[in-house]
């Protein structure tokens, strides 16, 4: 693996974007649905480390996803920093216990966080058991996606001009 400091400019730019294609997300969604069924958890969010949602499954109607994603990523980043200070390489999982709702976070690959919300309809043991398994399978999906040829999805060529007019609408109104 390349260290950022030793990278060429092209390699560095390759870092600068995270792209998810539908065929991969479909597989991930299926995996997450299986996980929810087996574990009895309420919902599963896959969030990238920068705090953006990748995909979600389950009962989500009452959640402000953008904010949760930002807070989860921030919280995980803070924990990771604590781990570093303690000489651990990284905590690979975190558990937040509430009175009714709980959150379990597991690191998947090195860029995404599997975030599981569950309540007293299941147990942390069940969730952890299946989460570990799911995280492994997710990592395998990522690996496979890395090997494969890209699907060719691309931003529409009008993206730039359309973006400009949307910015005008938003900020000059």
């Amino acid at each position: 693996m390349l260290e950022p400091h030793s990278m060429s400019q092209n390699q560095r730019l390759r870092h600068d974007r995270l792209t998810f294609y539908k065929e991969d997300i479909d597989q991930i969604d299926e995996l997450l649905s299986d996980f929810l069924r087996l574990s009895g958890a309420k919902c599963a969010l896959l969030i990238d480390k920068d705090g953006h949602l990748v995909t979600k499954r389950g009962e989500l109607c009452t959640i402000d996803i953008d904010t949760i994603s930002a807070l989860v990523a921030g919280s995980f980043a803070a924990t990771k920093e604590m781990a570093r200070l303690l000489g651990e390489e990284e905590f690979t999982a975190m558990f937040h216990q509430g009175e009714r709702d709980n959150i379990q976070l597991s690191l998947v690959g090195d860029r995404t966080l599997l975030t599981i919300l569950f309540d007293d309809r299941t147990t942390v043991g069940m969730v952890r058991l299946y989460a570990g398994d799911t995280a492994k399978k997710l990592a395998a999906i990522y690996q496979a996606a890395m090997q494969r040829d890209p699907s060719g999805s691309q931003l529409h060529e009008a993206f730039g001009t359309d973006a400009k007019s949307k910015l005008d609408n938003l900020f000059d109104s």
Binding site: M1, T19, Y21, D24, E89, E90, D110, Y142
Partner: peptide, 19 residues
């Protein structure tokens, strides 16, 4: 490339090659 990241992060807040 499609989905994220090679397994196992480098230490510290550096990012791993991907995508």
């Amino acid at each position: 490339r499609a989905a994220p990241a090679a397994p196992k992060a480098a230490p510290a807040p550096k990012q791993a090659a991907t995508l």
